[in-house]
Write a protein that binds this DNA or RNA. Structure first.
Lengths: 349, 349
DNA sequence: CTGAAAGCGCTTACAG
DNA sequence: CTGAAAGCGCTTACAG
């Protein structure tokens, strides 16, 4: 029964109360096996009686390292990164570590602030799902001895571990799915910012599927200035304005958001999704849900990414930098077929 | 140009390098206006030249308080709480404060761990969206002088501020919407755990709408053991098994997840959503997206909740506990009409 | 405006 | 197994 009066109890108070030295209380907290059972129980009783809560700032300062691990993701509004956080948290919790979570809201400046913040907090390690090349940010943190694992980004400078999803395969699965649904005029909608790795890789996968297929499928590519729902809608309107014969019958948005926008842009045109045009996204973002039909997409298995990344990071932390080989783990994506590509009749291929 | 060699620079190194005392460096960091411009610039130059990053643990310990604010939400997989985090972060950032985010994954034990963690970190304040009555957890934190603001939970013991959404109104909007769509046999699907405030309040709102309407609408209520998609599907199957004349023509799931499950449970029965049965959810959870039609729901305006809560908290923090009146702010919800209730023909009411 | 010094609450060799 | 003491890297009155 913690007492509710007076100043919060400190470690010194616990020591007095239990009749031991501060060092012993600290040992009970950090190395319980080095204390006799009788003493330990007495100290724990005092801790609970006084309602003592250890000051993590003082603890980290004295110990020279924190028990926390930082995770910076691109955007928490994208459910894939919530999955990443979930996976990372589960692994961290088993290792009795705390996960500190920060979302960058698709903003590189904010990403930098988040990394700096974790750097100031002297986290034991950093998991980073970067928006773009973040070598400078990473170097700064690593120079302090803080291991970094990259998520969903394939770094050239391979002095860090990384866990990525096979985005090329994601594009490949998407294009093949549409062709299996009978689509023969495929449009790929993406952006024109070539610094975005996932976009590039998915595009490459789409093209590979079309190459393998041969010449009876028409392919068309549209690049918009950004990947917003608005841009998708713009493309949707343009397609709806074309004559029926010249329209695609299958559309891949490089992101779910783009695909959702595309569908929205065609609303009111009389074009039926999926029967006139099948549409799909490519990153399993549950936030892209404002379409009249549910969107077929490619699941990026965020939870798996988070688990793998945290495992690698914990390994590097306990390995102490020695004997640690940087790894690159690739997770395979998976097709999630839903309403927007489920055609009433698929012409035999 | 930070040098990359040797041990990381400390405040003492910066002081030496700039030819000033440590106190002056600290002032540059914390009270720049108390330092002459010449000195300040010299110190800042040294900081950047040495690549100095302040140790937040040492800083918080010495200052007796941290610059961070903790936010614990029920579940990050529910997009409403991602919105809350976004709103809170925006306000915090403007106040030059850091937001520490933790999700409880619908688990009260994990919620307790999250609160304890922030307590150990000596955060300057805590925003808590609790799963259930959390008086004990709150008392513990508050006894340390840490202000708490409750989000989405209406505490009886009004010694804290709270920001809530009007769940009663949400239920009211839902029921009225179905009636406007021509529904005359309404079913409300919820849970039997009466400790969940939002469920209770939404139920009350649904009933109010029906009372106001009068007697030409039939009302039926189903309570399941939990609010999972599975439970929703179970109800969907039961309804599908009934004769067409006895089925409801409008169904409200007290959560989107429940409503999505309901629709899924009817798949294959030949029942058309929305024309045979209009279905809607009640909490605007974008994660509940696995339905063949998009779900009408009530938006809970999470971002607004987060902004209001953070504003109250910052006020209480800077007010120093004095002159602070605990407030209770209510945010109004909003109908989001989508496919699952958009009937081809609404019989005139 | 600037500097010297005490202290924040812990942890960890070290000696017993 | 236990205790006394130094030290972690900062901040903040306090005196100049």
């Amino acid at each position: 029964m913690p007492r509710e009066v007076g100043a919060p109890a400190k470690l010194r108070d616990v020591a007095h109360h239990a009749g031991v030295s501060m060092g012993t209380v600290s040992h009970v907290l950090n190395h319980p096996d080095k204390v006799s059972e009788r003493t330990r129980e007495r100290v724990l009783a005092s801790i609970s009686e006084l309602g003592f809560v250890r000051d993590a700032n003082a603890s980290s300062l004295a110990a020279g390292r924190s028990r926390s691990i930082g995770l910076v993701v691109i955007d928490l509004a994208n459910s894939m990164f919530v999955d990443v956080a979930l996976g990372a948290q589960n692994v961290a919790r088993n290792a009795r570590r705390n996960l500190l979570l920060a979302g960058s809201q698709d903003d590189f400046t904010l990403q930098g602030e988040n990394v700096d913040f974790f750097d100031e907090a002297r986290v034991a390690g950093l998991l980073l799902a970067p928006l773009q090349d973040s070598a400078a940010q990473i170097r700064k943190v690593r120079s302090r001895g803080c291991p970094v694992v990259l998520i969903n980004y394939d770094a050239d400078s391979a002095d860090v571990c990384s866990v990525i999803v096979d985005n090329e395969q994601a594009g490949y699965l998407a294009a093949n799915h549409l062709m299996e649904q009978g689509c023969r005029r495929i449009m790929f909608v993406s952006g024109d910012d070539d610094s975005l790795q996932p976009v590039q890789h998915r595009r490459a996968g789409v093209r590979r599927a079309l190459r393998e297929r041969g010449t009876d499928v028409r392919f068309e590519e549209v690049r918009m200035p950004d990947l917003t729902e608005r841009s998708g809608a713009e493309v949707g309107r343009r397609v709806a304005a074309r004559g029926p014969g010249t329209r695609p019958d299958g559309v891949i948005g490089v992101t779910d958001t783009l695909a959702a926008g595309f569908i929205e842009g065609m609303v009111g045109s009389g074009i039926d999704v999926p029967n006139d045009i099948a549409v799909m996204g490519c990153d399993h973002n549950t936030a892209a849900a404002s379409t009249p039909v549910t969107l077929t997409t490619i699941a990026m298995r965020g939870q798996r990414l988070g688990e793998e990344a945290m495992t690698l990071l914990l390994d590097e932390i306990s390995g102490g930098g020695e004997h640690h080989l940087h790894q690159r783990i690739v997770v395979e994506p998976e097709l999630i077929a839903r309403g927007s590509t489920s055609r009433a009749l698929s012409p035999s291929a």
